[in-house]
């Protein structure tokens, strides 16, 4: 019983997260401006991280936690660098 509930909720949640990632990709491709694309990339990173956490629940392995932590950190650094680039035209001054 509880396995059915959990498996169904997981399937719905993962489907929602994959669709959320797809919509972020649509926004990234559509733009129209550079800041829209960076914002969409940030959302894509976040959704991907959440999808990895749900994958960890599905497989019952703690391994996915480390992967999602690294994705969260990479996403943060990447977005900060891109925002700085939008403002100054260069990352390292």
């Amino acid at each position: 019983m509880s396995a059915t509930i959990l498996a169904t909720a997981l399937a719905i949640a993962q489907l929602a997260l994959v669709l959320a990632m797809a919509m972020a990709v649509v926004r990234m491709l559509r733009g129209p401006r550079a800041q829209d694309r960076v914002l969409a990339l940030d959302a894509l990173y976040l959704n991907c991280m959440l999808l990895l956490v749900t994958l960890g629940i599905r497989t019952g392995s703690v391994f996915f936690f480390e992967a999602s932590l690294i994705i969260a950190m990479l996403g943060f650094v990447a977005t900060v660098a891109l925002a700085k680039f939008l403002m100054r035209g260069e990352v390292i001054e």
């Binding site: 509930i5 719905i12 949640a13 929602a16 959320a20 919509m23 972020a24 959302a43 959440l50 629940i57």
Partner: peptide, 25 residues
């Protein structure tokens, strides 16, 4: 008793993220 709140939290979290991406699009 644990499966129901876990499933509910999963659905709330994924649902809110989904709505956020709908808004983004």
């Amino acid at each position: 008793w644990a499966a129901i709140p876990i499933a509910a939290l999963l659905l709330i979290g994924a649902g809110l993220t989904f709505i956020g991406s709908v808004g983004l699009m």
